[in-house]
Simulated assay, not measured.
Amino acid sequence: MNYKLIKTKETPPRYILESGDKLFSINDILFDILTEYNLCSDYEGVSRRVNDKYKDNSLTDSKLIEDSIKNVQNLINTKEEKRGNYIKNRIKIMRGETANKVYSIFSFIFNKNLFTLCGLLFSIITFLFFYINSIVFTKGYEIMYENFSIENIIVLYMFFFVVIFLHEIGHAIATFSFGEQPKEIGFGMYFIFPVLYTDTTNIWKLKKTERIIVNLGGVYIQLIINVILMVMYYLLKNNALLLIMIISNTISIITSLNPFFRYDGYWIYSDLFQISNLKKKAAELTRMFFFSPRRVVKEFVYQKSLMLYSLLNFVFWIFVTIYLFMYLYNSVDHIQNIIDSRDWFSISSVKLLSSLIFVCIGVFNLVKNIKNS
């Protein structure tokens, strides 16, 4: 078997098995079994040394050692299942030496001190901009609706494509700045929607604080974009389109930090509390709340971060479900009026259609989320 064992420099440490492009999280006992097996392939000898280390003669035997080695070999040789990857039909855009040249130029911005200072400063500037201009959540949408036009939609679409691409580059640059190689930036399909993605699997080998900085890399780039747009907004004397860009970009930042979608906030929470497979564990724990509450108290009482996430995740999706279906219900009369008048291309019709598309996306994601849970 061709593999490498990695013990991360954090407390408590994580144990990684690396084979080619694949990384697997393993426990400390399997890590010790494989370490000893690399030194001596005698199952009895491996068992004896592992048991001596843990001072427990019943911990392993030669049969367990043999089965563990075979399971690892099968895991390494098994091809990655396509259904396990939630982004399909991937097309690689950036990778290799050309990408590394770009990453190396901008890697300085992810110096930990500079990242902390600028990230905090740009967040405060963004907050003050919205506060000074009295832009709250509902007013932000009103401004966008008031300036709704086909031309603005086209410009915003192009703007967002650039922003999301830079967002993904942010993750890649952060990964590179900590000495790990981002595998690729690419284009794919998430359910039925086109998306850009960055494969930063190698950050598993980084310390927790470094992984969190990588997770925040995209949002950090968007905050920089926000500050640039704000300067342009004041220089061009309150340009409406720039204001819409700032609002849209900020909404995108907040959405990215939502831990209940599989976006940046999800991975930040997962890394912060070192909970792997967070969605799956939260779904299992939620089911236990209803069907085996005593088991929850017995097995998860000390996993407060997982219990909190499970509870908030459940409340969030209940709220989203109610909101989406109430919106659809309240839109029925408006839809009927448009059908009766056959005024398909008016601004109000296009606005409603755009809103319904986003609602349908939300419902679709909601159904998929429940199904995957």
Rank of each mutant, 00 (worst) to 15 (best):
Y263S: 06
P293T: 04
A240Y: 09
V296A: 07
E299Y: 06
F300E: 10
V301Q: 01
D271Y: 00
F273D: 07
M288W: 03
S341D: 14
L242A: 11
N277Q: 10
L312D: 07
L257H: 01
M307T: 01
M307Q: 02
P259S: 01
L285C: 05
F291V: 05
L312G: 02
R295L: 06
R295E: 15
N277V: 05
E284L: 00
P259A: 02
N337R: 15
V231C: 09
I246L: 11
I338A: 13
L241D: 00
Y309T: 04
V332T: 05
P259G: 01
N239Y: 04
V297D: 01
L236S: 15
V296Y: 10
I247C: 03
I251S: 03
L278Q: 10
T286H: 07
F325A: 11
F261N: 06
V315R: 00
V231P: 07
N277K: 05
Q303H: 13
W344R: 09
Y327G: 15
Y234C: 03
S276I: 08
R262K: 15
N330E: 14
Y323F: 15
F289L: 04
M245E: 12
Y233T: 10
Y302I: 14
L311E: 02
F260C: 07
M326E: 14
V231L: 12
A283H: 07
N238A: 14
F300T: 10
I244D: 12
M245Q: 12
H334D: 15
R294S: 08
Q274V: 08
Q303R: 12
I246G: 09
T250S: 13
K237G: 07
M288T: 04
I254E: 02
S310W: 04
D340L: 09
R287Y: 04
R262F: 04
I338R: 13
V315L: 13
S310D: 10
A283M: 10
K304S: 12
N258M: 09
H334C: 06
R342L: 12
D340I: 13
Y309W: 08
W344H: 11
S256Q: 12
N258E: 06
Q303S: 13
L306C: 00
T250D: 05
F273T: 09
L235I: 14
I247L: 00
D271H: 01
R287N: 08
M245I: 00
Y263D: 00
I224C: 09
N258A: 02
F314E: 09
I251H: 08
E284W: 05
L272C: 01
T250I: 08
K280W: 03
Q222F: 07
I224E: 01
F290T: 01
I335V: 15
I339H: 06
L308A: 12
H334W: 02
L243V: 02
L285Q: 05
L243M: 12
V315Q: 05
Y234G: 04
V297W: 01
I338N: 11
A240I: 14
L243F: 03
N313R: 07
Q222P: 00
F319N: 05
Y302T: 12
T321H: 08
I246S: 12
L223W: 00
L278H: 03
N337G: 13
L229R: 03
K298I: 06
F261R: 08
T255I: 14
L243C: 11
T250V: 06
Y327Q: 14
Q336A: 13
I246K: 09
I244P: 08
P259E: 06
S346T: 15
R342Q: 14
M307D: 01
Y234K: 08
D271P: 03
P293R: 04
L328C: 10
I275R: 00
A282M: 07
